[in-house]
Every structure is written in C-alpha cells, then in structure tokens.
Amino acid sequence: MKKFLNLLLLTLLSLTTFAQGESGTNDFFKSNLKIYVVVAVLTIILSCIFIFLFSLERRLKKLEEK
C-alpha cells in the first residue's frame, strides 16, 4: 500500500516538473486552444480524490487488523 502511494506521489511529482519544463516556452498547455489545461485540472481533481480514498482505506485496514 505504502509502495503504491509512493509510486502515485512520484508520478504526480513528475507531472509538475513536466509543467515547469514547459513554462519557458508554454507550448504544450497552450496548444489546441489550451485544451490540455482542462486535462490537467481533471487529473488534479481525480488524483486528489484517489489519494484521499487510499488514506481512507488505510484507516479501514487498521480497523480490520485490530
């Protein structure tokens, strides 16, 4: 579980560095009339909710182990 969370965190981290790399030229997120900004927003919301659900599951697991 912890491994998986770390993996998720690292993937997210790579996403932010990717965005930073683009900030100089602003090419990718500005292409196609900025549609990828919408993609990024949806990704952020979904990943936040998923991280929360995983933390919820960890609480549940602790209860089950008692």
Binding site: S23, N26, K34, V37, I44, I49
Partner: peptide
C-alpha cells in the same frame, strides 16, 4: 479546498498569467 486551489493555480497560470513563471 485543496482541489479547488490546485486547479485554480494551473488554470490561472495559462490564462491570467501567460508567460509568468510558477
């Protein structure tokens, strides 16, 4: 709230603040 904040951050980066560093 965190979701709203992060989404607002990236949205503003590419609309209000074009060409501004993070």
């Amino acid at each position: 709230g965190v979701c709203g904040y992060l989404t607002g951050l990236i949205w503003s980066k590419y609309t209000w603040y074009i060409g501004v560093s993070w």
